[in-house]
Write a protein that binds this DNA or RNA. Structure first.
Lengths: 259, 259
DNA sequence: CAGTGGTCTAGACCACGTG
DNA sequence: ACGTGGTCTAGACCACTGC
């Protein structure tokens, strides 16, 4: 039982007043939040697992439960944690079915959303072009893994994805591993490579299908495709993926909510 | 000085316990939130104006300041209110420059964002097709106003917008009024027609330019365009606009953050 | 200086899930 | 019955703004 408060557990330095006025000023709850993110990054709690209860964290950090709550609130609103009343707070995972649709924005114009599966065309090593290096925050020529796949909705091929990953963390990714895996790629990244994708930025535009696109997607060359360029990030704004998708949007659309 | 608590001011009915168990069960702070939204809808506080302070609202509703705070927190996160430390809480308005970019997602591929202005081509009355009626929650044949404009970035025409509005609230909208107005359309809707747009849902796809599109946007017929269908909503999920944009995305892109 | 929102605490009770 | 997160309160002090 902890009756003393080890100063090393306390965020900031010295008394609360001193901490507030120090160079690294931040509200207490935000310092707690940063500590929690750091624990997530280190893998102290794995995706899908419960983190300690609010009261336990409050004891650990020597702050009130309300302060921990506010830190967790922000992490939950950023989808890094998931609260479940009566059960606890859990590390978000890409294996929850509801998490998929946060990043899969393509949906059929009519009817229910159809489950999608991948048909992998390619998985090999490559050197980063200047363009891709910039997007991933690497230097040109850095080692990459390049995956190419078609996303098939039911029987309908609708997305041709080119995916570039930094070779280092994804060293063991192979065509075989992809072929035998069934589920969202980010789920594989998370459980197999310990790289958890938490957010992404996209740029969309309309382009004409190249001969390659057309063949893979069974459309006419020159027909309009939606091109989606995505950079995905993990903890600490570190880019972990550049993805370029070409989507057939004759009977599908990209949905977006503006709030 | 209020020493008694007038029950009419209190949300729910009867004692707190009774209120929590009643058919309209909702946490207190959410009932407060609904009351605040209702005041916004009624126009009790106009866009840009300050709402009463947290303590004043707490007194009015006979709840603690913390409960009011949580209600306001949610409204601020939905961009209906804007907190400003030391000054108060304000009703969000489309006239703030930073509000524009929440709904204007098209940006140049390189260089700084360029201010956009409208070149209006048309403003007239029309009957709702079955399709547009459905999107706006009207019956087919309902009276609409149809606006057509080109969005020009600097000198570059990049978006051809067709905008359909229910005729009733926008009765006095005219080509003249549009021509003399300078600023975002939602700002005009808000200050001239009392219709405040608070969120939208979009569907994006790639299409080939028609002859019409091509002429307005100075591109070749058949060239790929990004088509953006948007339904905009005001308080209470009431649809107030259907907008279809055709965007040239050769040197521009639609930006989107996935969080 | 007064008033506003921002942070933090402490404690109470409730609703939910599990045993 | 117990532990979790969810709600609500009350009060303290801080930081920012403007008079």
């Amino acid at each position: 039982m902890e009756t003393t408060s080890p100063p090393s557990f306390r965020p900031g330095s010295g008394s609360r007043r001193a901490a507030r006025r120090s160079a690294v000023f931040a509200p207490l709850y935000r310092q707690i939040k940063d500590l929690l993110v750091e624990s997530l990054r280190r893998g102290e709690w794995m995706p899908g697992a419960a983190i300690p209860s609010e009261t336990e964290l409050a004891n650990r950090f020597q702050v009130s439960q309300g302060t921990v709550r506010k830190a967790i609130d922000e992490l939950a609103s950023e989808n890094l944690l998931v609260r479940r009343q009566g059960k606890g707070t859990f590390v978000a995972t890409h294996h929850e079915p509801k998490a998929q649709y946060r990043f899969l924005r393509l949906a059929p114009d009519r009817g229910e959303p159809v489950p999608a599966h991948s048909r992998f065309l390619q998985c090999g090593r490559e050197r980063a072009s200047a363009d891709i290096a910039t997007r991933l925050g690497l230097r040109a020529g850095a080692a990459l893994i390049h995956v190419r796949r078609v996303l098939v909705f039911g029987e309908l091929p609708r997305v041709l994805d080119d995916i570039w990953l930094p070779a280092a963390p994804f060293r063991n990714l192979s065509a075989d591993r992809l072929a035998q895996y069934n589920g969202p790629l980010y789920g594989l990244f998370e459980s197999e490579f310990g790289v958890r994708m938490i957010r992404a930025e996209e740029r969309l535009r309309a382009v004409a299908a190249t001969a390659d696109d057309a063949a893979a997607l069974q459309v006419e060359p020159g027909s309009p495709l939606l091109r989606v360029d995505r950079v995905s990030y993990t903890y600490g704004d570190r880019a972990i993926e550049f993805r370029r998708g070409h989507c057939v949007t004759d009977d599908f659309h990209y949905r977006n909510a503006l709030i």
